[in-house]
Write a protein that binds this DNA or RNA. Structure first.
Lengths: 205, 205
DNA sequence: GTCATCATGTAAGCCGTTACATGATTGC
DNA sequence: GCAATCATGTAACGGCTTACATGATGAC
């Protein structure tokens, strides 16, 4: 979970832990950000594994720098850049900027394509980083999810056949509704991916 | 979480651990049942707290006994009943049937009405056991949830204003859709509860 | 000079899981 | 007699949280 999120974000841009946490908060739904207490150990672990590495802080702005929201943040980042590498290598205590390695990219790809049954949150993360997959891989991801949702729908139907309490019934109704909409949403994604695949194949004829 | 589920189920009927686990599996969405490794310790803890107590196994069938699904299960239960209390108090190792206590009922009520922010799964459990609440308490539960969902919707809108990647965008679209439907569902529940409250008040005029 | 924010980390604990151990009963 | 199911538990571990500790920098 956390590895997927970290590697996904670092693929796009080098970041230090604190900033990473902010991005994580934006990425995940509604202030469900992860805590420092799990982020920093995870970063150290990933560094030991060789999936990420601490990079030199450049004096040049970090590539794209898409003016990421808060002005204050941008300003702080600029100033940090100015004081820059001297401090980092000097007194030691400052920000530690991480970048992804080739091994990390391989690992990310594994995490995105692993056929293991995943929970809803992990599926959401996979979709969030789906641009790092090929159309065919995305299609597989979506279709596996589709199968899973169909199973759940059948399961739910079986439950609803047995009579239940009013409120439990209302809950099941809501679940069924979510499932229907999720399936429709998935079907749209699948369709889009199929046309994308075809348009890729056609030019080679 | 687990306490809420256990106490909720035991309010309706005395059960032993193994059966409790099966019921839990039926209650929660799609085979997300909890494991024995957390169920049994939880039962022991609740017993120590005085929220549940091991009851004598009666030779009479346990009240309603709604022919709970599997024939095999029903048969086994019958036979267990026949050999009955002798074994339970004798060699010790057999089934341990738990019932809820007054303290347990109080605790359940606390768990159902506590104003602490709860996650989606706990909200679902609260709804599942909502029949143990008064109409006014249910209304409060639903309206607190409604506020929470409105917050999430605003949050989501703010996120969607900033341009995002296609797949992240699709994800947000899905989230927004779920929120809209959840809110409509909640509004139906709230409306139903309001009319129920009124119909309760009117006869006293 | 002190407060807020940025920044990194450790320690303790919670809540759950899987894997393991044990044993009774029943169907074949 | 042996496998399957019913039934209860313990031990180890996983992943995440909160609380705590530390320290730099910038704003006022």
């Amino acid at each position: 979970m956390i590895d997927l999120a970290i590697l996904g974000l670092l693929t796009e841009q080098e970041l230090h832990g604190y900033e990473l946490k902010k991005r994580l908060g934006e990425l995940l739904t509604s202030r469900a950000s992860i805590s420092f207490g799990s982020l920093y150990p995870a970063l150290n672990r990933l560094e030991k594994q060789g999936c990420v590495k601490a990079v030199e802080q450049r004096t040049t702005p970090p590539a794209v720098a898409p003016m990421s929201g808060s002005l204050a943040g941008e300003l702080a980042a600029f100033k940090a850049r100015v004081r820059g590498s001297g401090l980092v290598k000097g007194t030691g205590r400052s920000r530690k900027v991480y970048g992804i390695t080739d091994l990390g990219r391989t690992r990310l790809h594994e995490l995105l394509t692993s056929p293991d049954v995943t929970d809803d949150r992990e599926f959401a993360l996979r979709v969030a980083f789906a641009r790092h997959l090929s159309p065919a891989e995305r299609l597989e991801l979506f279709e596996r999810r589709r199968t899973e949702l169909l199973d759940r729908r059948d399961d739910l139907r079986r439950r609803r056949e047995r009579k239940t309490d009013t409120y439990l019934g209302a809950l099941r109704e809501r679940d069924a509704d979510h499932l229907v909409h999720d399936l429709a949403w998935l079907d749209r994604l699948i369709k889009a991916e199929r046309t994308l695949l075809q348009s890729q194949e056609e030019p080679t004829r």
